[in-house]
Design a protein around this nucleic acid. Structure first.
Lengths: 248, 248
DNA sequence: CAGTGGTCTAGACCACCAG
DNA sequence: TGGTGGTCTAGACCACTGA
């Protein structure tokens, strides 16, 4: 029983924090099934002693996994491996990455990539004065050769060196932003639905009036500056959003 | 500058943890604008000393707000109030609570509240053997007197004492579950869209073919048991999902 | 009652960043 | 170089749970 825990290798010379080494090891043990759902862990004090750590450090490792939903702790009871199959929450990742990781072979057609200036709602959403230079992107995203979504993005000019059409065809926008040194920090999203207009239907290979999923997103960097405002439409017949929630 | 911080009242006789008292006070100060976005906080050691706390406790209060996106910390730099207007993430709350808190005056019409047995997809989603007794709920949710959504839920029988129609008319399902001693822990959701059928349109006051938002949700308790499986439809013309994301 | 997690303390050393 | 947050220790007391 305890062998799987006391055998956790600890490298005190590593730059990786001790609590994180422990947490990662436990996470692997859980995902591999070595620690089955419902399994009871030894108590914090024992575990800390076995591993030669202080209790706060051991505790921090476990809390990290509790926050991610992999462990459940109860006072007076102990710590158990959670049963739920909750995947990781919808992340700050681009549609491109999601499609790649699910084997959907995405491609991108760049419809527009031009300089403009912020007016009206776009200026408001970007928290920029009217007339501020921006970049407008419009892309058509395909999965397995079929049109899937029309992506429209507005970015403050100057935040990022010019995005080349070639780069946009081969990577997601978020990866390009990160590569330019932008630290994505938070985003506010709105997901809704509406019927396709004639033009939208033609673009996406649907018929007029077909149901579309709509997603609006404002992304902020770690200083709270708006990095990007996007309004996207997805073919509801071919796409849906998956998300996981944990009770706070 | 520091007056707003050193004036934090601390009640050591309260059952509310010290770190949480501090965190709540700081959160109110941020939301009220007393601590403006971008404002620099004093360093952890000073704050702890001013409040008569240990550094770990002060740190824990700040970390709590960092995790929620209200503060941003950088080594060698300090701690600042984040600029973002990120609201709280989509929580494990019911539509009812959301409508109440936004002043939408919800009401509920209970269309069905009956015992049945799990078959096919419902059995699969609930992780129950075919034929297991379940309860089927179907409700029509109104906001400001207008139909908003059709909610259909499947629950394992016996998990909860019988839900009365009267109770369902006056509270959200989640609140009733919690009141029955169920600890909601996690949920997996799918959000999509499609066109309304004739019957759905009539029920919701739309026309056939109108865009509907669809939401499927499987909810787990803290032991990983499925508590509820729901398939809901929302009038896209009157409803959308808002969610916030933080980079991990 | 004994055992568990929840909170808190008062130090320590280190890694990173700015001037 | 001085100041910041990031990590870690070795204790302590309390609140809750179950037998």
């Amino acid at each position: 029983m305890s062998s799987s825990v006391s055998s956790i290798p600890i490298d005190r010379t590593s730059p990786v924090p001790l609590y994180f080494q422990i947490a990662q090891h436990l996470e692997r043990a859980i995902e591999s099934g070595e620690l089955a759902p419902g399994a009871q862990l030894e108590n914090e004090v024992h575990l800390a002693a076995q591993l030669g750590l202080s209790r706060p450090t051991m505790r921090r490792a476990m809390q990290y996994l509790v926050d991610r939903g992999l462990l459940v702790r109860k006072r007076g009871i102990g710590t158990q491996v959670a049963q739920s199959k909750v995947k990781r929450p919808l992340e700050l990742s681009s549609l491109w990455d999601d499609l790649v990781s699910s084997g959907q072979q995405p491609t991108t057609e760049v419809i527009a990539n031009e300089s403009s200036s912020a007016v009206g709602e776009v200026a408001h959403k970007l928290t920029l004065p009217e007339g501020t230079p921006i970049v407008v992107l419009e892309r058509l995203r395909y999965a397995r050769g079929e049109p899937l979504a029309r992506l429209r993005n507005y970015l403050p000019a100057g935040l990022v060196p010019a995005l080349t059409t070639g780069a946009l065809q081969q990577q997601g926008l978020y990866k390009l932003l990160r590569a330019s040194g932008v630290t994505l920090h938070a985003a506010a999203q709105t997901i809704g639905a509406r019927a396709a207009t004639q033009a939208e239907a033609r673009l996406l290979g649907e018929t007029k009036g077909a149901a579309l999923l709509t997603m609006e997103r404002i992304t902020y960097d770690d200083r709270g500056q708006v990095v990007e405002y996007g309004t996207h439409i997805y073919r509801a017949s071919r796409y849906f959003f998956e998300l996981s929630l944990l009770a706070h």
